[in-house]
Amino acid sequence: MWEQARQALDQSWARLLGQFAALLPGFLAMVVAIAASFAVAWMLAALLHALLSAMHFDQRLERGWPSVSDWSPHHSPALLVTRLAAAAVLIMGFLIGISALDVSLTYDLVHSIVGYMPNLMGGVMVLLIGTILARFLSRSVLIGAVNINLQYARLLSVGVKWMVLVLAVAMTLDHLKIAPGIVQLAFGILFGGIVFALALAVGLGAKELVSRSLEREAEKTPTETAEEPFRHL
């Protein structure tokens, strides 16, 4: 019986060693793929950085899309592009390496990661557009509110900015399928909260404004109601 048990153990050990040996070329290929992707990523990053610097990419983008530099590392959109390109090459190298193992589990992993990529790209795009839109609307509201003499111009502008940002983040998370139920609930609470806060702030501010305006109207002397002398055009 002991002999049979020993034989079973030997066979099991031999099978394990055989399977491990079969995996070795795959591991080696993975290591080579990752190492190569590191080298390619490094070279690509250096090349891109030199190219973008020569093009004065940061300065050009600052004029057209100033919000991009806000969330770029060291406020440099060129650095952001460089790092994104390098990260893409590294991820690709890692996926190639994983798939070289030729195991059904790794195949499923690669398949699901690749299948998730469109969601990731879509999410990034939504976030990017949301950030740019938030900045644009916030500026528009700020300038418009100042031009019509609203004392709470800054508050309105910040409120609009956060409303758009919250909406963009919620859309991004929904797109990435990360806790969709919680995101919807949290978004509803946050968005509603911001709108309510704005309504309260503006409502209370306007109350004061209306009363001041009525007081001024009542206190106006006949000379003050005379036609205004300024003609701009």
């Binding site: 500026r139 700020l142 300038i143 509110a145 100042v146 031009n147 003499n149 004392q151 111009a153 800054r154 502008s157």
Partner: peptide
Amino acid sequence: VESFQLGVRNLQEI
């Protein structure tokens, strides 16, 4: 003048 003062307070970044 008020409009200008409001601008100074709020439009600095621009």
